[in-house]
């Protein structure tokens, strides 16, 4: 049971003859929000909030932590896929799923940085790194969340095709969410770019997304034999 709040604004009408309750006269810090919500807003931060929200200050350590956490959560999903075979496959599939995201972050993203410089886009290396770590964190969080459901399916279904569909659908969903996050994070700085740069970006961004998708798919195809029927 939670404690009764100090003030009870208009939740229940007082009965006749009732002594009015003392009212807290101190002005609220944020008049647009109910008083009881404000304290929670200031003090509370969930794990997901800390992972997904970028800090205002430039902190490479924070971004590296987000990247590492995202990869770790993605590895949980890989481990769940490996449960179909068991043993070493749990570890190898965990590494395999993380490898797909790592390939995009370590290969595709730096290549995209060169393209951004070529078209003179006003995006710093840190902004790109932050967008990349945010995308990996979101994709990893989704994959980590889906890991128990994936484990349920890979362990209990009889046919291999269901495992492939569930596995690739989950990876595709996480990839789409990651790409969406990446594009959203870069949209604001790109809005300040020149018209020529923006025109180039209408080609460069879809090309990057396509390249990243094919790269991740190729890595997962090679590293996740449970999904491709090789096992």
């Amino acid at each position: 049971m939670t404690a009764e709040p100090m003030t009870m604004p208009a939740l229940s009408a007082p009965f006749p003859g009732a002594v009015p309750e003392p009212v807290d006269e101190t002005p609220p810090a944020n008049p647009g929000r109910p008083r009881e919500e404000q304290g929670q807003e200031e003090t509370f931060e969930s794990f997901a909030h800390g992972l997904l929200e970028a800090t205002r200050a430039e902190s490479w350590v924070h971004e590296a932590r987000r990247l590492g956490t995202g990869l770790g959560l993605a590895a949980l999903f890989g481990g769940a896929l490996g449960l179909r075979v068991g043993g070493v496959a749990i570890g190898s599939h965990a590494l395999g799923v993380a490898a797909g995201l790592t390939a995009v972050a370590a290969v595709a993203s730096p290549a995209f940085a060169i393209v951004l410089a070529l078209v003179n886009a006003p995006i710093s290396g840190f902004t790109l790194a932050r967008a990349t770590s945010g995308a990996v964190a979101r994709a990893g969080l989704i994959l980590g969340g889906l890991a128990p459901a994936a484990a349920l399916y890979v362990v209990t279904v009889e046919d291999a095709i269901t495992v492939s569909v569930v596995g690739f659908a989950s990876l595709a969903l996480a990839g789409a969410i990651g790409v969406s996050s990446f594009a959203t994070d870069l949209r604001t700085p790109l809005a300040a770019a020149s018209r020529d740069t923006r025109r180039w970006m209408t080609v460069a961004m879809p090309a990057f997304v396509l390249f990243a998708a094919v790269l991740a798919l190729r890595v997962w195809w090679l590293a996740l034999p449970v999904l491709t029927g090789a096992r």
Binding site: A48, L52, L141, G144, G145, L146, A149, I177
Partner: peptide, 13 residues
Amino acid sequence: VVCAPAFYAVSAV
């Protein structure tokens, strides 16, 4: 139990 982590992740994203 199985859906709870997925719901947490999806709502956060």
